[in-house]
Amino acid sequence: MSTKEKVAVTIDAPASLVVLRPIRMLVRELLDQWLSVEEHAEFVDDMELVFSEAFTNICRHAYPDRDGEIRVTVELDSNRLELRFEDTGVGFDPESVPDPDPASPGVSGYGWCIIREKTDRWSYYSDGRGRNFLELSVRLPQGR
């Protein structure tokens, strides 16, 4: 595959766990095709995990008591993977999420820690018109 190539995929989906696995699989397949999965299996596993955490968090926390939508955009070029999630639900403050404490393990609260750890850059903001954006950026492993 040429290093000049770039691909972007946008998916509008219900914020529902019913579609978590199919969309996660699509992202995984895209990465498998973009990279050599045999050489980069751990990276692909990590990105599948990051996607799962972001999508599940929005389903659970952005729309706690109503149906909603998520727009997912996946962009790949020769250097980076960018994942963007848009929703119109309840926003949150990422800085308020504590790191896991093994002395008092919780049943939730690990997702944001995973996202922070597995990505190079992240941002979360609201546009003031009811849309929230989670943007994640990761450098691709060398040698694709």
Binding site: S52, E53, T56, P105, G106, V107, S108, Y110, G111, I114
Partner: peptide, 13 residues
């Protein structure tokens, strides 16, 4: 082959 934080949470529960 795949576990995420929700899976971890279910193990803690």
């Amino acid at each position: 082959k795949f576990i995420d934080s929700s899976g971890c949470g279910s193990l803690v529960a």
